[in-house]
Every structure is written in C-alpha cells, then in structure tokens.
C-alpha cells in the first residue's frame, strides 16, 4: 500500500514573528523552520501503518525545494521512503485551494490509497487544505483523529467532537485522515537514520509535471496585509485585605469584564 503524507514546513513554535517592512508578509530571516507539528503526527501514523501493513510512505509538499531539509530530518529520517516537492513560481501567491489542487495531483500521480496530514498547519491555521485534497480526489476524509487503525481495506478512526464525546468513524479506503494531538507520539530520528535519509529520494516537480498550470491555482483569496495583535495591556494588582480585594475582584469581573 502506498501511503501519502501531506507536509508543510512552518516556523518553529518558539519563533517570535516579525512583520516585514511593507506589511506583505513576515520577516523570514533568522527563522528556524520545522515540519508543522500536526503533520509530524501524520508522518508517525503513516510509518506505524506501513510497519504493520507493509508498503511505502511518500511525503508530499507544495513549497520551495529547500523544504527538503526539514522533510529529510522530520520525515525521511523517521521512516518515510521518499518525498515529492512541487516547487513552482506560481505557488507563491496561491491559496489553500491552489495548494490542495497541487497535493491532490501529486497523490493521484503516485496512486496512494491512504493519506495522512496534520489537522492544520501551525503558521496560518487555515484548516482547509486536507478536506479540499479529499474532495479533489473524490475520497472521504475524517478530521481531528485521535486514534486510527486499518486492515488494509477498511479503517476505524476516532475523533473528539467536544464535551468529552468521541465519534468512531468506519469506512473503506481510500481516505484522508487529519491528525489531532494525541494520535501518537512521534518517534525521534535515530542518528544513523538521519545520515541514511541523505540518500533517500526527493523528487522536485513543477506544476507542468503534474499536468497543472498556473491558471489552475489562481487564488480565490489574496492576503493583503499582515499586522501583529495589539500588545496585551499590563495586569492590575488589587490592594488591601482579602475582603476588600475579593469585593473589588467581583465588581471588576461583573462591571468591566462582564463575565459574571
């Protein structure tokens, strides 16, 4: 079974984001780039499935070919067999639907039967691409999955639907599964595997290689401006004895915060 994983590379979670001078994006210099953490859950689940069922795990990315650094360290070094990166100038201005078209075309060209990916990327938090990929492939998808199993033809996926309720979804492959925290614990790359990942295959493709053109990924949505959220105002310290402070706190919660 060929198992695909859609992977995005995003700034490390500790990054202090700065807006570029023209407000059109973020300052990228000095950022440490990592595999988006939810995608790491997807990679781990794919590798575990491959270990149980056989087959091969293929990573798919739509982005600059430099992402292969992160794909090797965060994917090929932990058990994925190879990677496909679609790098094309036209990708720069596209939107989630454009990315989904590219990923779906890549997955279709490899003949995958099962696809994992993170529930969302941690940079723009759009939460759109996985469902769009499934739709474009004509497959079902199950989102925010915390437990997954498959026998190679059918699958069972568990998802949290809020309030402590769990939903169990069963069906037949193919399917797109999006990973929620808790699905698994991604393994560390063993150091010799990091060296071996250097020799694994990364195919860099253009839109044309997938029979797509720039017109196919013309964005419906355009990002026009970036700004940082306003600075959080300083906290307020209540003074006096306990009774006074409690009274004042209740008053503030009721009159200012309007939460009680």
């Amino acid at each position: 079974m060929k198992i695909g994983v859609c992977v995005k590379v995003a700034p490390d979670t500790d990054t202090r984001i700065k807006i570029s001078g023209d407000g059109a994006g973020i300052e990228e210099s000095g950022i440490k780039w990592i595999v988006s953490p939810y995608d790491s859950f997807g990679i781990e689940e794919a590798v575990q499935t491959q270990e149980a069922q056989g087959g091969e795990v293929i990573l798919f990315s739509a982005g600059p070919k430099d992402w292969q650094t992160q794909l090797r360290a965060g994917g090929l070094a932990v058990g994925a067999e190879r990677a496909v990166i679609v790098d094309d100038p036209a990708l720069a201005g596209t939107d989630p639907l454009g990315i989904a078209r590219v990923l779906a075309a890549g997955i279709a060209s490899e003949g995958c039967e099962l696809v994992f990916t993170g529930k969302q990327a941690i940079d723009d938090d759009n939460v759109q691409v996985p469902a769009m990929v499934a739709e474009l492939l004509g497959w079902p998808h199950v989102s925010f999955v915390t437990d997954f199993s498959t026998d190679g033809s059918t699958f069972t996926a568990t998802r949290n639907v809020g309030g402590g309720t769990q939903e169990v979804v069963t069906g037949s492959l193919p399917v797109v599964i999006t990973a929620e925290r808790g699905l698994n614990t991604p393994r560390y790359a063993k150091l010799p595997a990091i060296m071996k990942a250097k020799r694994k295959k990364v195919d860099v493709k253009s839109l044309g290689d997938l029979d797509l053109s720039a017109d196919d990924i013309t964005p419906a949505v355009q990002l026009t401006n970036f700004s940082l959220p306003p600075e959080r105002p300083a906290g307020r310290k209540l003074e006096g004895d306990v009774d006074t402070m409690v009274q004042e706190l209740v008053r503030l919660l009721r009159e200012e915060a309007k939460v009680i």
Binding site: A73, I194, A197
Partner: peptide, 11 residues
Amino acid sequence: TEEERAIRDTV
C-alpha cells in the same frame, strides 16, 4: 552539514 545540524537538533 545539513545532517550535522539535524543530529544536533535531535540530540
């Protein structure tokens, strides 16, 4: 090298 940096980050 890219691998040396990955090894350092992993450790």
